[in-house]
Computed example of a mutant assay.
Amino acid sequence: MNITNALEIADMYVTRAAAAPTPELLSLLYRSSLNSIHAMYAAGLLSAAENEECLKRFVDTCQRRQIEITGVRP
């Protein structure tokens, strides 16, 4: 995979979260990916609007996957 920008990296985080097979892995991905998205924004690699969109998509994906895996809302 050839990643060229921060938006592609954020998309990769969303894809990984959507495929997480266990709640434990999803939790780990959630923390590390969320921190990475914040870091990309802090480093100026994402605009405020891009950061907001990435965070919304990532959190929504994690919540949906949590429900799929456990059947319980987080």
Rank of each mutant, 00 (worst) to 15 (best):
M1F: 05
N2W: 06
I3A: 07
T4N: 12
T4I: 13
T4W: 08
T4V: 12
N5E: 05
A6M: 01
L7F: 00
E8A: 14
E8M: 15
I9E: 05
A10Y: 01
A10V: 10
A10W: 04
D11W: 09
M12C: 09
M12N: 10
M12D: 06
M12P: 00
Y13A: 09
Y13D: 03
Y13R: 12
V14C: 14
V14F: 06
V14G: 09
V14H: 04
T15V: 15
T15I: 13
R16W: 07
A17K: 03
A17L: 08
A17T: 07
A17V: 11
A18V: 06
A18E: 14
A19P: 02
A20M: 03
A20W: 03
A20F: 07
T22S: 09
T22I: 06
T22W: 04
P23D: 01
P23E: 01
L25M: 11
L25Y: 02
L25C: 00
L25H: 06
L26S: 06
S27K: 08
S27E: 10
L28D: 15
L28Q: 15
L28G: 10
L29D: 13
L29N: 13
L29F: 15
Y30S: 05
R31P: 00
R31M: 07
S32T: 14
S33N: 13
S33Y: 02
S33I: 02
S33K: 01
S33F: 09
L34P: 00
L34S: 07
L34D: 04
N35S: 09
N35G: 10
N35W: 08
S36H: 14
S36Y: 07
I37H: 01
I37T: 04
H38V: 12
H38F: 08
H38M: 12
H38T: 04
A39D: 11
A39V: 08
M40G: 02
M40F: 11
A42C: 04
A42W: 03
A42L: 15
A43M: 10
A43H: 15
G44S: 09
L45Y: 08
L46D: 06
S47D: 10
S47I: 10
S47C: 15
A48M: 12
A48V: 09
A48I: 11
A48T: 11
A49G: 09
E50N: 05
N51S: 14
N51A: 15
N51V: 04
E52T: 14
E53L: 14
C54Y: 03
C54V: 07
C54N: 07
C54W: 00
C54K: 04
C54F: 00
L55D: 04
L55W: 00
K56Y: 10
R57S: 08
F58I: 06
V59Y: 02
D60V: 08
D60F: 13
D60G: 01
T61K: 02
T61I: 09
C62M: 12
C62R: 05
C62D: 00
C62K: 04
Q63V: 15
Q63T: 12
Q63R: 13
E68R: 13
E68S: 12
E68Q: 15
I69H: 07
I69D: 01
I69Y: 00
I69Q: 03
T70M: 08
G71R: 06
G71N: 10
G71S: 09
V72G: 00
V72P: 01
V72M: 03
R73P: 03
R73S: 13
